[in-house]
Nucleic acid binder design. Sequence first.
DNA 1: CGGCGTTTTGAGAGAGCTCAACATCGGTGG
DNA 2: CCACCGATGTTGAGCTCTCTCAAAACGCCG
Lengths: 206, 206
Amino acid sequence: MRGTPLALSGLLRDIGVRHQGARSLRAGQSLFRQGDKATAIFEVERGRIQLLRHTADGRRVILFTAGAGQALAEAALFSPRYHCDGVAAADACVRFFRKEALLAAFRKNPDLAERFMALLARQVQSLRAQLEVRNIRSARERILRHLSLAARGDTVLVDGTLKDLASTLGLTHEALYRTMAALERDGAIRRKGRAIRIAAGGRDRA
Amino acid sequence: MRGTPLALSGLLRDIGVRHQGARSLRAGQSLFRQGDKATAIFEVERGRIQLLRHTADGRRVILFTAGAGQALAEAALFSPRYHCDGVAAADACVRFFRKEALLAAFRKNPDLAERFMALLARQVQSLRAQLEVRNIRSARERILRHLSLAARGDTVLVDGTLKDLASTLGLTHEALYRTMAALERDGAIRRKGRAIRIAAGGRDRA
DNA sequence: CGGCGTTTTGAGAGAGCTCAACATCGGTGG
DNA sequence: CCACCGATGTTGAGCTCTCTCAAAACGCCG
């Protein structure tokens, strides 16, 4: 669920693209640096990779944090150089896909190209939905909407930590815990370990 | 600037795709409905189109609001039906691009396909950056970061209203006005009509 | 000129953040 | 097997910052 309510189950690997290798990184290690020639795009297998940009005065700005199962630096496919740093926020393992190989494959195989487009289109859709969720001020409403977007049927299976969930929702973990407890007290949701079931009238009681 | 800090200058039309027509809508009118056969994707020329989904209990959820220059329902290219409603939030005019025509063009012309992918990839990038900006709690910091991402050189040209800017930043317009005034008082930025210049040490004084 | 939407400033309240303490769980090593 | 440790999960209390409600100046267009 990390970072995506409409889970993009699977990614490059699943559309039939073969990766050209993998690489392990220790927390803090760089995968690539701003200005490096862009030779590949990546998919996080384990851990977390952050895209960082450095401002003129040397401050770090996090542009994006990619968790397991998320693609990284797709835009580099169409740009000669990486426009930011890619650094491991925790010990991580990434698969990499060489640019020329990918682009060549797309040209040779329109089906593959189409699947990749579909992947990107779904990402756009999912990101927009996330952005819209962030427009909701109330923690309660925001959580409920996220859950109802992420739900399969009436249940959501949280596959990261609740802390991660809090940060993807733009809440502190305390606020998330408290509000979830309140929601459960009110009967709007019911929790059983990783599974959260949304009550039929959950959204009414909001 | 609406909805995109890293301005996606131009869209489908600019990558060489020809549209198959245009349509005007009055505020409140539907462009398409959830479950309709997906026959086209769109680009907003004027006004605003909202993507809405209806929950089981009949409540409307806004998934996305597309302003002038933004594409709409790209994901429909790869889905047989629209998965939400497209409704005009204000009087609007949209260009439409037929699915089969687009997909056929992509298959026949790999360059075009590649440009479309690039478009999607840049959108993904931009949306992620927006999401990351939303993680900043402080209005002051959030505005400064948005500005530094949106800046060309040291100046930002705001091309919507400041109210629009406030909503893309997830702030009330009052908070935006107040904070911008404070930033100007502190010398972090300087405004001249539509142009905002960021002072060299703007981010230090935050 | 008159009306409407944007821009601007004021004052107050509420929601979420911050800091803090504690419980719980899973892994690690003696 | 148990003691220990770190990270996650949970709850409490106070405070700050933004939202909300309100009012007024400004600019634009018919």
